[in-house]
Design a binder for these strands. Structure first.
Lengths: 230, 230
DNA sequence: CAGCAGCTTCACGGCAGGTTCACGCGGCGC
DNA sequence: GCGCCGCGTGAACCTGCCGTGAAGCTGCTG
């Protein structure tokens, strides 16, 4: 499963650089620039780890660390400007999982994130499931089988590929081009609207009404996404 | 396209070695030995990235970084000689994209240059897969979803595009032309005032009062910007 | 080689939403 | 105090997107 990292710093450039490196390393990234936004971000997106600057407008990094540890059991890496601050912090034992002091190389930070996540993974048993469940919809990528409310549904290869791609990240929007690419290797030939036809067929088979979709939602002007009905 | 790298260091030998390695890697190389020459070099040759020593005669590396970022949006990799410099240095805070400490291997430097250029390429192309949080406002570019204080808000494609563009750099002001471009590829057709209409609709949906904006601030005579209320 | 299943394409109708316009208002300069 | 520039707003038009059924095409199977 794809991991989400929350990056909090009031310096726009730092956030930008770290976000880019973390994304390149395959992480989903959420950013915030002050304490309040960070709290909101955790509430909304439930990241797997947080990277906090200590000096922040509003609620500072130390207070955030306490709160995240207490309320969400969220691993935290603290970023600090001065080395002397670290000594103070270690004395305080705020409960951060690691510390990084500025200036740091982005690579170093990515390495720390990986290390902390690995450590956390090991303590709580990993469950690598190749089966995706969204509401009544079950997509088994190993068996290439799809069931709706326990009822098995026969999909063609292309149909399955499209559905599985979207189901892999429920809520995430996929453009027609992305879906075409997922289906046909990366051949950029083909009519984008072809996807419409396949979606229509998938919807028919899994019993989905475009007006009131239970699974495949149309995102006007953009593409489609799979999502459990709210 | 061939990329140009600016190498600045007062030590002739270092410049020579780095230049040789970078050229071998296929880059065009421009060199300078002090701050003033570096500024002139950037003006005359518009390099794609700069490699700056911190200790320089004349204008130092940190000041150069600030200036290049501000005036040319030029990616910078900082090189530092002594570990003690690190204490004084605020690192990425000044806007460098990466940082290398001596002694370094030339290969490592080349690798970093490649990495930064690749990253910049990608981020200028599309900024997908990120979530930006500003105060109570959460903009999820992967899901194309916006929430205000946890409450989901339905935006149309254009509305989302405008908001996401501005939220990507909180505090930064965007002209109507820039927003138009962000929305419609780069077609320069379209009425600038159209943006006003969309901003109005966005404000209505996220519950923002133009008189006392919580998120989208009007910058008279220029455009709009997204900013957390102070 | 015939038959078939599935992928792709096309044309068209309905409608969401994007664009434009006109008007009112408030701030700023003269 | 007056006029002008620029922003906010609501309504009307109209572009362009999506959903659909049917028909062509391709590759597999017997």
């Amino acid at each position: 499963m794809r991991r989400t990292v929350l990056v909090v710093d009031d310096n726009e450039k730092i956030v930008e650089v770290l976000a880019a490196y973390l994304e390149a390393a395959g992480y989903e990234v959420v950013t915030a620039h002050d304490g309040e936004a960070a709290i909101e971000a955790v509430r909304a997106r439930r990241p797997d780890i947080a990277l906090l600057d200590i000096m922040l407008p509003g609620v500072d990094g130390i207070e955030l660390t306490r709160r995240f540890q207490r309320d969400y059991d969220l691993p935290v890496i603290l970023v600090t400007a001065k080395t002397e601050e670290i000594d103070r912090l270690i004395g305080l034992e705020v409960g951060a999982d690691d510390y990084v002091s500025k200036p740091f190389s982005p690579r170093e930070v990515v390495a720390r994130v990986k290390a902390v996540l690995r450590r956390v993974d090991r303590s709580s048993a990993t469950s690598a499931g190749e089966t995706i469940v969204v509401g009544d919809l079950v997509v088994d990528t190993a068996r290439r089988e799809v069931t709706v409310a326990g009822e098995k549904v026969e999909l063609t290869r292309t149909e399955f590929e499209i559905l599985a791609t979207m189901a892999a990240h429920p809520g995430r929007v996929y453009s027609r081009l992305q879906l075409l690419e997922a289906v046909s290797g990366d051949a950029f030939e083909g009519y984008e609207r072809t996807i419409d036809a396949h979606v229509k067929n998938i919807r028919k088979k899994i019993g989905d009404d475009p007006k009131e979709p239970r699974y495949i939602r149309t995102v006007f002007g953009v593409g489609y996404k799979v999502e459990a009905p709210s």
